[in-house]
């Protein structure tokens, strides 16, 4: 189990789902893959497929249609899984909190492990969010990061 627990911390594969965000955070999630930030240094890979995902990165407020999609995607992820809400809207609904088609933050639909604030959240903050998720996982597993 030791080697698996360690490996989990070294290889978090992420999937990004855009609820109905403004694109700001989405593009920042993508930007964190690129040479300046190079998220792959930490073994983080954007898989784009819930079946291969460890960390679900969600941006944007949940609206009435994407709530279903988000729930479906979350259910398809194999355990252990973490959810990171990136950006103010995904935390609380942000500026869209009173729009008629917006339900609110991501935690209305799926449990969230790490909240990354910002409008838009910077790539550094997103990477930091993933690392925080790993720390949480490490604590749960009782191993050192």
């Amino acid at each position: 189990m030791g080697i698996i627990a360690t490996s989990r911390l070294k290889s978090p594969w992420i999937m990004h789902f855009d609820n109905s965000s403004c694109n700001g955070c989405d593009i920042e999630v993508l930007a964190s893959l690129t040479p300046l930030y190079d998220i792959e240094r930490f073994g983080i890979v954007n898989m784009g497929n819930p079946k291969h995902t460890d960390v679900l990165v969600v941006t944007g407020p949940v609206n009435r249609r994407t709530a279903r999609v988000l729930k479906n995607l979350y259910d398809q992820i194999a355990d252990p899984k973490m959810v990171i809400a990136v950006g103010t809207c995904s935390i609380s609904g942000g500026v869209f909190h009173n729009c008629y088609n917006v339900l609110g933050g991501v935690d209305k639909v799926v449990p969230v492990d790490v909240y990354v604030p910002g409008c838009a959240a910077r790539p550094e903050a997103i990477i930091d969010g993933v690392v925080m998720a790993l720390q949480k996982l490490a604590k749960l597993q009782g191993v050192a990061l």
Binding site: D18, N19, S20, S21, C22, G24, P61, N63, R65, T66, V69, C89, G94, V95, F96, N98, C99, Y100, N101, V102, C119
Partner: peptide, 24 residues
Amino acid sequence: YGHRGIEKACELNEYPKNIYLCER
């Protein structure tokens, strides 16, 4: 999938505030 209802929200806000909504 991305419909939030910003046009309606813009009617409810005062006009200077709408800049921030429109930017998003």
